[in-house]
Measured scan of single mutants.
Amino acid sequence: PQECLLLEPGLNEIMANSLDYNERLWAWESWRSEVGKQLRPLYEEYVVLKNEMARANHYEDYGDYWRGDYEVNGVDGYDYSRGQLIEDVEHTFEEIKPLYEHLHAYVRAKLMNAYPSYISPIGCLPAHLLGDMWGRFWTNLYSLTVPFGQKPNIDVTDAMVDQAWDAQRIFKEAEKFFVSVGLPNMTQGFWENSMLTDPGNVQKAVCHPTAWDLGKGDFRILMCTKVTMDDFLTAHHEMGHIQYDMAYAAQPFLLRNGANEGFHEAVGEIMSLSAATPKHLKSIGLLSPDFQEDNETEINFLLKQALTIVGTLPFTYMLEKWRWMVFKGEIPKDQWMKKWWEMKREIVGVVEPVPHDETYCDPASLFHVSNDYSFIRYYTRTLYQFQFQEALCQAAKHEGPLHKCDISNSTEAGQKLFNMLRLGKSEPWTLALENVVGAKNMNVRPLLNYFEPLFTWLKDQNKNSFVGWSTDWSPYADQSIKVRISLKSALGDKAYEWNDNEMYLFRSSVAY
């Protein structure tokens, strides 16, 4: 590609939709070469300064400071330590791993069909083939991996386009969902002041979706909304933040926050679980009234959910574990990228498509890292959202599997949720969690119950496949010279610098 592309739109479109291996590689590498390399010296300084700040406030390091958001002291029976968070994340991840490994094996087999000769049947997945710029969410792999393609499509993007949905309609439908469970409408100022579409040439905007509580009843969302099912669900997520903000607005200023950061992320995700169900999509006209649910549509639905929800958990866990180790000084600065990709291979089963030396800073190419967000919130929120969903479905008197529950129109479920939201940070999160779900610790069981039918199906699908991955295989081993030459021509001086062995191999191949 010759034109100058922004991340959004532009590069993200390539990473969402392109099936051209080399075009995807160009976009993936260009973003890291342009952005990651510029941020490397800044990120090194950032780590030093943030650690100084944390230690001045009596924390061991900046990662310890972040984990302090979960700490509860002096509340008998509800205490929770920063170290306990690490333990809980690690042991819940071990419980999730078998499901993830089977999802990984299934996706690898489907990617082998889409990119023959580029995928190893026992290796890691190349990082640039996973549906977005970071491989964070695998949602866009659904069209390549759908188990029963002859069934009606449960990705309702086409239906939204056919019905001329726009950003306003998407957010109005999200608002209807919250109102149906007894939560309030958005304010008039929300509709007047939010930026729900890309302003285009009028001004440059950071398009990463964010929710804003500017105080004095001024709530806004910034999002360059596209007419897709993914953005339909994202709208519910962002509006969930606003509902939380509005619910605790009466609290004293210092207590106007989520019980912990994971709670804030979980609220909209609960609504997304219901909004994505075929039952709900039928009720708002995005699935045909004669759409029939059966075992095959159930597996299609659960796989689509797993690509988004299960596929991202190792990504989140590994990223934050790397940062915690960096802040603690356990990874020397001259080994940041080496350790990043070692951990990516070992924990996530994902491999870099071309080698990256220590001039890169791949983590900082992600919005949340370069903008100083702690990231473990996206792991804890996933466990909380299924715990909350299970409890709210019980309040809504849902009968049947958890993945079929739609809590819309249940004011009982809405009241149970609101009673927790309005507390803000005035009560320990362990107590707030217990008030809703009857337990005071994160628990992976509801998530595993939700995906149980899919897990059973995946194990059957993978019975003749290798489950797990070898960390030795690299996608650039066989194609390295071709890849390096093409990237050198595209990126010039910003391309990865060849070492002596690679230059010798190149000259030998040319001479041959």
Rank of each mutant, 00 (worst) to 15 (best):
S272K: 07
R136C: 02
E192M: 09
E265H: 04
S272E: 05
F367H: 02
F137W: 04
N257G: 08
P209W: 12
E269A: 02
F219I: 13
E269S: 02
Y373V: 05
R136Q: 05
T308K: 05
N153G: 05
D245C: 04
H241G: 01
Q251C: 04
F219M: 14
K304L: 05
Q251R: 11
T187M: 11
H264E: 06
N153K: 08
G217R: 15
G217A: 15
E192Y: 12
M229N: 01
R377S: 04
Y373F: 07
T234R: 06
A249F: 14
F367E: 08
R220P: 03
E192Q: 03
T187D: 01
D245K: 11
N257C: 01
N153E: 07
G217P: 15
G189E: 14
T308C: 03
H264D: 06
S374Y: 03
L214Q: 13
E192S: 10
W212M: 12
D230N: 10
V206R: 07
F301P: 02
R136P: 01
H241M: 04
Y373S: 10
G215W: 15
P252T: 08
A249P: 13
R377P: 02
D218L: 15
H208R: 08
L233N: 06
F219Q: 12
N193C: 14
W212R: 13
I309C: 02
F367M: 02
D245I: 00
P209V: 10
R381Y: 05
P209S: 07
L214M: 03
F137D: 04
F253W: 13
R220Y: 13
S374F: 04
T139H: 08
R377H: 03
E192L: 08
L233Y: 02
V206T: 10
D230T: 01
Q251L: 13
T187Q: 03
L214I: 13
N193E: 09
H368R: 05
R377A: 04
W212Y: 09
T139Y: 05
A249S: 06
E265Y: 02
S272H: 04
G215R: 01
H237W: 07
T139F: 04
I309L: 07
P252G: 07
D213G: 09
H241P: 12
F301C: 06
K216N: 15
H208I: 02
M246F: 11
H264C: 08
P252M: 11
S374G: 05
D213Y: 11
E261H: 05
P209C: 07
L214T: 14
W212E: 14
N140M: 05
G189N: 13
G217T: 15
F375D: 02
I309N: 06
A249N: 10
F137I: 09
F301A: 05
G217Y: 15
G215M: 00
G215A: 01
L233K: 04
K216D: 15
R256K: 04
Y373G: 06
N140T: 08
T187Y: 07
E269H: 04
I309D: 01
R220G: 12
P209Y: 11
R136I: 06
Q251N: 10
E192F: 11
N140A: 06
D372K: 00
Y373M: 08
F219W: 12
V206I: 09
E192N: 13
A250R: 05
H264S: 02
E265S: 03
N193W: 00
P252I: 11
F219S: 14
F253N: 11
F137H: 07
W212L: 12
L233E: 07
I309T: 07
G215S: 01
D245N: 11
S272R: 08
N193L: 00
H237E: 02
Q305D: 05
M229S: 04
F253P: 11
T139N: 04
Y373C: 09
H368C: 03
M229E: 06
H237P: 11
S374N: 04
F367R: 07
S272L: 08
R256M: 01
L233D: 11
M246N: 12
D372Q: 02
S272T: 10
D372R: 02
T139E: 06
A249K: 14
A250G: 05
A250T: 10
L233W: 03
H208G: 10
F367A: 09
V206H: 08
R377M: 06
D213I: 13
P209R: 11
E261N: 05
F301N: 01
F137E: 05
T187K: 15
P209G: 08
D218S: 15
E261M: 01
N140Q: 03
D213A: 09
P252Q: 10
D245G: 10
F301I: 09
R220D: 04
W212Q: 13
F367D: 08
E261V: 10
E265W: 08
T234P: 11
D230G: 05
F367I: 10
G217V: 15
R381F: 03
Y378G: 07
Q251I: 12
S272N: 03
F375P: 07
T234C: 06
D218K: 15
S374K: 03
I309Y: 02
D245L: 12
T187H: 04
H264W: 10
H264Y: 10
H264R: 08
T139S: 05
P252F: 10
V206C: 09
L233S: 09
H264T: 06
S272A: 07
T234K: 10
P252Y: 10
Y378A: 07
L233G: 09
M229W: 08
S272Q: 05
A249V: 11
T210I: 10
E265R: 06
V206A: 10
L233H: 06
Y373P: 03
P252C: 08
T139C: 04
P209M: 12
D218N: 15
E269Q: 06
F375K: 04
R381W: 08
T187S: 01
M246V: 06
K304F: 04
T187L: 13
G217I: 14
T187F: 09
K216G: 15
K304C: 03
Q305P: 02
K216W: 15
P252E: 01
P209D: 09
P252S: 06
T308A: 08
D372E: 09
M246E: 09
S374P: 09
E261Q: 03
H208E: 08
H368I: 02
T234I: 08
N257F: 05
N140Y: 04
S374I: 06
L233R: 07
